[in-house]
């Protein structure tokens, strides 16, 4: 009787026992999942890189600008304008960090553009490396005195004055790198050469009349030889013109005149 009842209950409550087993397995599973595992962060992060510039000051470098040409320059105005310029060199140990600016100052009279002049032009030049030299230029249109002005880490730098003069007496139109004293001495020299040239030309005319008959025959035979002789004679007559480009020009002119005269004689 007792065994029968036990068997009866066992079969009747088998569901309860089954559910209890499932629940026990569940609890064991949850326990093991929590007991045996621990977290590892495997850190996840995103690294965004932003490129930006923070300027805490500008280092210009130790560059020194210097106008390398000393002395006042005289330039004669030919046509509407004349190009004037000054050499500028970076004599400092560092390169320039950025392009530079130069100014041209002008004074109508012979006074100093630095003190009495007005700014007539503003230009830029490429950053100079250490020991690099460039030439600053400006087309001057007015008679007067000009000067170039730049700034460096030391402060203001002024070039020597450039006098732009009116070309009254047919002076050279290109620039001359001479001081005022040198220019005046050169002008005196050229005046003397011109008077000498005139004198020798007159003397030659007299002599040439006597020798013309002889030369006609020679020219007819060997014109090139005659020309060479004529050149030698001219050189002997005008030793003072040697070394002067202006003097050489006048010699060549006279040669041309002489040739024309000879041609006339031949005819």
């Amino acid at each position: 009787m007792r065994q029968t009842r036990l068997r009866k209950y066992r079969s009747q409550y088998r569901w309860f026992r089954f559910v209890s087993k499932i629940a026990l397995i569940w609890y064991l599973f949850v326990f093991s999942a929590t007991y045996f595992t621990s977290g590892t962060s495997a850190d996840f992060f995103y690294d965004a890189r932003a490129t930006s510039e923070v300027s805490s000051g500008i280092w210009l470098g130790d560059y020194r600008l210097k106008f390398t040409e000393n002395g006042t320059e005289n330039v004669y105005l030919c046509g509407e304008s004349v190009e004037i310029g000054r050499a500028l060199k970076n004599v400092g140990p560092d390169d320039m960090a950025e392009d530079g600016t130069y100014y041209v100052y002008y004074s109508a009279d012979n006074g100093s553009p630095q003190n009495h002049g007005v700014e007539v032009y503003e230009g830029t030049f490429n950053a100079l490396k250490s020991k690099e030299e460039i030439r600053l230029q400006f087309h001057a249109k007015n008679i007067g005195t000009y000067a170039f002005h730049v700034q460096d880490t030391d402060g203001d730098k002024w070039s020597a004055k450039i006098h732009v003069k009116e070309n009254k007496s047919g002076n050279k139109c290109h620039n001359t790198n001479m001081t005022t004293e040198e220019i005046s001495v050169e002008n005196e020299k050229s005046d003397i050469n011109e008077s000498e040239e005139k004198a020798t030309a007159n003397a030659k005319k007299d002599d040439s009349d006597d020798e013309n008959a002889k030369k006609v025959e020679q020219i007819e035979q060997t014109p090139s030889e005659t020309e060479n002789e004529t050149r030698e004679e001219l050189r002997e007559q005008e030793p003072t013109n040697e070394g002067s480009s202006q003097g050489k020009e006048s010699n060549l002119n006279e040669e041309a005149e002489m040739n024309e005269q000879n041609d006339d004689n031949v005819e």
Partner: peptide, 16 residues
């Protein structure tokens, strides 16, 4: 730390 046959079990908490 608890281990299973010489291995530790770690839960991965992020997607790195």
């Amino acid at each position: 730390e608890p281990n299973v046959f010489g291995y530790q079990l770690k839960t991965v908490l992020s997607g790195s």
